[in-house]
Design a protein around this nucleic acid. Structure first.
Lengths: 227, 227
DNA sequence: CTCGTTGGATAGGGATTACTTTCTTGGGGA
DNA sequence: TCCCCAAGAAAGTAATCCCTATCCAACGAG
């Protein structure tokens, strides 16, 4: 053990270039954002974490806001949310909400924090606009794909379900992510789907007399027998 | 017109003392927090807004975090949320959610922002703990009173309703407040109550065959044909 | 192999800001 | 009426941090 870990001398670390370097810089910025938050993040801390110097940062981005913004979008782009197709609305929702929660728990909290903390405050945008710019960049709203598939399968009739019902599971997941800054417990996701969302669909059959026919019985509903 | 309004000379403004002064200082801190946010708030800006000097602030609070924290709790304490008693669960909920939204829309956003932005970051508390410290100071959770009254009236059976259902309206209101930074539209509150919450109660009767008897018919529910 | 581009290190200017210190004066309590 | 605590004003200190400038050396393109 000839290496003393307390000193990292001139090992002449290989030099990074182009896109590879840029990714490392943005990753460092994101990590710093996660660890100390926007308010306590400095250009120097980003540079040191990326094992480079501030000059390299300023060669690519004009100021602190720009690199933070780039780091946020870079993180989102490199961490797409899975939209698995399991064959039933219930399982699709469970899987997708879980994926959403796992992938975006940190993201939402961090992005919201940065937006709140004065990110882009100098650009004249209102906090409201900044939030939109960061949060709503998801091109097709996440739920649409899941719901559209269920509609095509005949499980639900999109036209007859209030949009508030469709949006509710996603809003609750967002709420929990913002509150806890952590992915949701699987039990909580199951509660959202089974205790809140699906009953609101069944309630509709209850009143209308089951217009959806056979497929109205949501498959996969948890029953003690027949897993 | 001997007075030139562009100069506010030594008018010898009356000197404030004790609790009255303290309230003015905390109000100034809160207003500053709302207007420029935690990140861009300075002791000097608070002092100038309160028309006093920084020394007066430091005579009462040890540092910036302390005064911001005090301003947040002061604002909450001086703006209690109404819990009106209208006689029916539906109207109680509508009124209370509206009051909650109107009174706390700003509060939640601002408090969350400050917590995120590094408020109390030096105390060693995690963001999670800071959030709890600020948000969850409401002694009895807001909904409990409304639900307990409905239970005592016989409108609902608290034991048979999943807690996720009871919490959902409040979580959605919180979600919207955090997203929009503004009070909710009345139509949105009505949608939460009538399209999401109340159907989840009725669904329970549907299955159990109306254990709640007469009172199970929620009064005030908007139905074209009195169901 | 050579050369020009760019990564990486260092130093520092300039601005901001938390917090301190000192002093004068107003006003409340006795 | 007098006294003394605290309000308010002003200036200063030390630290932080954004951003710039400069220099050197490594890597890639040709």
């Amino acid at each position: 053990m000839g290496w003393v870990t307390t000193e990292a001398p001139k090992v002449a670390r290989p030099r990074r270039h182009g896109k590879q370097l840029e990714s490392a810089l943005l990753a460092a910025a994101w990590d710093e954002l996660v660890e100390v938050g926007y308010a306590h993040l400095t250009m120097d801390s980003i540079a040191r974490r990326a094992r480079t110097s501030e000059a390299v940062l300023y060669r690519r981005w004009a100021n602190k806001d720009q690199i933070v913004l780039a780091a946020i979008t870079h993180h989102r782009n490199t961490n797409p949310v899975a939209v698995p197709d399991t064959g039933t609305l219930r399982n699709d929702l469970l899987a997708h909400l879980a994926a959403l929660s796992d992938t975006l728990a940190g993201f939402f909290a961090i992005a919201a924090a940065a937006a709140f903390s004065g990110l882009l405050a100098d650009t004249g945008l209102t906090p409201h606009q900044v939030r939109d710019k960061i949060m709503n960049a998801q091109q097709p709203p996440h739920g649409r794909i899941v719901y559209q598939r269920a509609h095509d399968r005949g499980e639900i009739d999109l036209g007859r379900i209030p949009s508030a019902v469709l949006a509710m599971p996603f809003e609750l997941v967002r709420h929990d992510m913002l509150m806890d800054l952590n992915p949701l417990q699987p039990a909580r996701i199951q509660s959202i789907v089974d205790e809140l969302f699906l009953p609101l669909l069944q309630d509709r059959h209850c009143r209308d007399g089951g217009v959806l026919g056979e497929s109205a019985k949501i498959p996969g509903q948890p029953r003690p027998s027949t897993a």
